[in-house]
Amino acid sequence: MTARAFLCRCEDVTLGEIDRAIDRGLTTIEEIKRYTGLGTGPCQGKECTGALARLLVDRGLARADALQPFTARPPAEPITLGLLAAARAPFFAARPEEDPDPKDTP
């Protein structure tokens, strides 16, 4: 087993990979997320975001009071398409009088 220290276990992002992103000039959480993939796996950043923020503050790359996590996008919990599909008709389908003619160009 190669010795590695992980910040994001979901997407296998090690401290070395964070260093590479920082070397490219990326010092915000949004940028590092995108460049390394941190926070884009099954837990969607729940485990790693705080640790990344701490690293940026400890290295003097960010001010603690100016840091923000990356955008919290739904769903916060995994949800199946089958369950979502069931809610379409009762809650979100346009009623006929509200639905203008379907456009010829979807």
Binding site: A3, R4, C8, R9, E47, A51
Partner: peptide, 13 residues
Amino acid sequence: AREGMIPLLNNDL
């Protein structure tokens, strides 16, 4: 609150 990760070598084992 939740417990995040401590970046130690082989913290993923």
